[in-house]
Amino acid sequence: MLGSTMNTTALVAYSLTKEYNATPVVQEVSFNLNFSEVLGLLGPNGAGKTTIVGMLYGGVAPDRGFVKLGDIQVQSDGRTARAKMGIVTQEDNLDPDFSVFENLLHFAHHYHLTGKTARKRVGELLEQVNLEAHGQKRIDELSGGMKRRLVLARALINRPHVVFLDEPTTGLDPDARQEFWKLVIDLKQRGCGVLLTTHYMDEAQRLCDRLLLLQQGQVIDQGTPLELIDRTIGKEVVEIEGVDEARLQALATQFNSWCRPFGSGYLLALPPAPTPLWDDLVATEPQRLTRRHANLEDVFLRLTGKVLE
């Protein structure tokens, strides 16, 4: 919708770099966020995801680099930029003294929305995030998922073109996560560029059109989830337990594959079928042997040697 009538790039982040006490937290991170797209920043805790989001809206001042939203440079005019952004921070900073409805109503005031116009908009937003039946509730009466949806609604007051979601489903139960995901897909379909940070592999895989994989503040790889899996792992992996590592490493080398410690066992990539590696692994008589489709977690393990927390 928006993407077809305007330039497809909603936001450009260029060479973002940030240090705290001489420790680099984000290093030379650049990317574009397009309209009608969900871009994911995937990485473990401490990878710099929240710092990057902070730099996107002006909550963190980069040491180097800049962010542009259309013609607006966020670092010099964050106020104007934020009028066109929707920001969902990690913490639920709702007003506990206000009802659900009032939270949105008084926040709308900051966007010059008052009176009837504001009330109408608040009604629309509550409907959009499925909270229309809860307008009069107090904040402490809401479930975690409802609070997150309310923070999202608050971010959407001004019909933003880009929305940042910083770990929006952390701590939510599976149903609440599913419900939140629907809202994210809805935003994308409305033409929004959505940037989402997560350390949930399934969330990244299901929601994101493109991913930046982050480790220690650096982008270690990027692409669509499928591209990343295909390029880094292939189609299938094997989880194996109860076999000596040296033996597995030898097999991996022989079949031009790789092997990494994984949980209480090891993970091996299976070369494209038909592969004798599988038969050889079966022949080792392991305690446990599982063959499954490769996923983003495997990508991360391969690239960093670490499992996503």
Partner: peptide, 14 residues
């Protein structure tokens, strides 16, 4: 505690 300042700074406020 309430992080009201932080919330306000996600709005178009300086």
């Amino acid at each position: 505690f309430q992080k009201t300042w932080q919330a306000l700074l996600t709005a178009p406020l300086s």
